[in-house]
Simulated assay, not measured.
Amino acid sequence: MIPSKIFFTKGVGVHKDLLASFETALRDASIEKYNIVMVSSIFPPGCNILTKEEGLKYLKPGQIVYSIMAKNQTNEPNRLISAAVGLAIPSGNNHYGYLSEYHAFDMNEKETGDYAEDLAATMLATTLGIEFDPSIAWDERKDIYRASGRIFNSMNICKSAYGDKNHLWTTVIAAAIFII
Rank of each mutant, 00 (worst) to 15 (best):
L59V: 00
W138H: 07
D143C: 12
R150H: 05
S160D: 06
I64G: 15
A88S: 05
E101C: 14
N94S: 12
L26G: 04
T170V: 05
T9K: 00
V37M: 10
P45R: 10
V65T: 04
P45N: 05
F105K: 06
T112C: 06
A20G: 12
F22T: 09
F105I: 07
G97Q: 05
S21Y: 04
N72L: 06
S41E: 13
L56I: 05
S40H: 13
I180R: 15
W169R: 02
F178I: 06
E109C: 13
V85I: 09
W169S: 04
Y96S: 09
K5L: 08
S67R: 08
E117W: 04
D28I: 06
H167F: 11
I36D: 08
I151G: 02
S82N: 02
T74E: 00
F152V: 13
F22L: 14
S4T: 13
K159T: 07
I144R: 07
L18H: 12
A175F: 10
F7S: 02
H15S: 11
Y96N: 08
R141K: 03
I42C: 12
H103K: 13
K57G: 09
E131R: 11
I130D: 01
M38Y: 15
D118M: 13
F152S: 15
N166Q: 10
L59N: 00
T127G: 13
I49V: 12
L124R: 01
I144Y: 02
N48S: 15
E131T: 09
G46C: 04
K33F: 10
R146F: 13
K60R: 13
